[in-house]
């Protein structure tokens, strides 16, 4: 019953907009580093680039996060953990693939232990190319995801 009321409320355009606005500006990211874009993750979260301006705060607890940055290559051993982490997160959840390695395998295109593109295991929302991408590119990725969330349809 409550779910039905909730769904019908979400169909009201204004309410939906407010909801999307709230989601877009509080994207807390999981602290799970998979590859070597890790230091740029730190750089973008810290003093100079400070993505907390856009509401993206690295947070240790999975259960309160909405966003995964797949930082760089994903090995087959890490892929299981990454999927586990993704499944533990509450809905709605978003994925940003950072770097060439997580987009298509990149430099490790012929490696026996690297997953060729993280979209084989997770649904990716935004791709940010680079090896590693500059923090400005990360910020652009976050902004693109925010725009995507703001347009999110009435169905979900």
């Amino acid at each position: 019953m409550l779910e039905k009321i909730g769904k019908s409320l979400m169909n009201i355009k204004l309410l939906r907009k407010i909801f999307n606005w709230g989601r877009a500006w509080s994207l807390w990211s999981v602290h799970l580093e998979t590859g070597c874009c890790g230091p740029e993750d730190m750089a973008r979260a810290c003093a100079r680039f400070d993505t907390e301006r856009f509401g993206t705060l690295p947070f240790p607890t999975l259960r309160e996060c909405d966003l995964i940055f797949v930082t760089g290559f994903v090995t087959k051993k890490m892929a299981k953990r990454l999927k586990l982490a993704y499944e533990q997160m509450p809905e709605p959840k978003y994925v940003i693939a950072i770097g060439h390695c997580s987009i298509s395998g990149g430099l490790w295109w012929d490696s026996y232990s690297v997953v060729q593109g993280v979209d084989e295991i997770l649904p990716v929302d935004v791709y940010v190319p680079g090896c590693p991408p500059r923090p400005e590119a990360w910020i652009q990725g976050i902004r693109m995801l925010q725009e995507k969330i703001a347009k999110e349809g009435l169905k979900k």
Partner: peptide, 14 residues
């Protein structure tokens, strides 16, 4: 260990 093993030593031979 082994979460970031890419096999660099093997790839370097190629």
């Amino acid at each position: 260990i082994g979460y970031t093993h890419r096999g660099i030593e093997k790839l370097a031979e190629k």
